[in-house]
């Protein structure tokens, strides 16, 4: 396992990746003082995911983890300030609404789209494939390629409103079937979340104490 040279150290690696992709890739890598390389590769087209993952599978890479998140909207306050400066200078431009910020691949950064990162271990190095998916969108499941994608994909499907199509066993992983889908996308009162219940008697004491405090 450790005898194979890390494929990402090969000078052709980035060329190989680009040859498999139908659209552009944003690639960035860094090597630390111990010689461990971490490579970040953002896909402009999410359909390029399967061909790239197949390459990693053939090179005996291990899918370590899949991270999902909903990146927040880029800071609006700063944009407003810039606009103010502009409108002070030239007033003709007044009503141009700011275009929504887009990711590298053109997915709208509206705070609801998902950023999915596949973390692959290639010997001592790490390759991270970054894919953007609009809300309620879907990605092809990597479970047929990597057994280790099974649990992470099921976990993401129960927490967010996205689907990994073609997952062989898309059951809930940690959360019970009775819990509504996409829990991480909703605001839930803490008492509901913690399933906290209190008696009527407690509330009558609390309201009585509050009234006594007011008078």
């Amino acid at each position: 396992m450790t005898d194979l040279p890390s494929m990402i150290r090969s000078p052709n690696f980035v060329t190989d990746l680009r040859a498999l992709a139908t659209r552009d890739l944003a690639i960035d890598s860094a090597t630390d003082a111990h010689g461990v390389t971490v490579l970040w590769c953002e896909l402009a087209n999410s359909e390029d995911l399967v061909p790239l993952a197949t390459l990693f599978r053939n090179q005996k890479a291990r899918l370590v983890m899949v991270t999902a998140s909903q990146p927040p909207k880029p800071d609006e306050e700063e944009e407003d300030e810039e606009e103010d400066e502009e409108t002070e200078g030239e007033e003709e431009n007044e009503t141009a609404p700011p275009a929504p910020a887009l990711t590298f691949g053109g997915t709208s950064m509206d705070g609801t789209s998902y950023e999915i990162i596949y973390h692959f271990a290639v010997q001592g190095d790490i390759v991270n494939l970054i894919v953007h998916v609009p809300q309620s969108g879907s990605l092809p499941s990597l479970t047929p390629l990597f057994r280790t994608a099974d649990w992470p994909e099921r976990e993401i499907m129960e927490l967010y409103g996205m689907v990994f199509s073609g997952h062989p066993n898309p059951r809930r992983l940690f959360l019970d079937k009775s819990i509504d889908p996409a829990v991480l996308e909703r605001l839930i009162p803490f008492s509901t979340l913690a399933n906290a219940a209190s008696t009527q008697e407690l509330w009558s004491k609390v309201t009585a104490a509050a009234k006594a405090g007011e008078s």
Partner: peptide
């Protein structure tokens, strides 16, 4: 039978 230890494969701190 898998020879795999992060301290050896991807050293950190002073494990090298």
């Amino acid at each position: 039978g898998l020879h795999h230890d992060i301290r050896e494969a991807a050293p950190y701190h002073v494990y090298d």
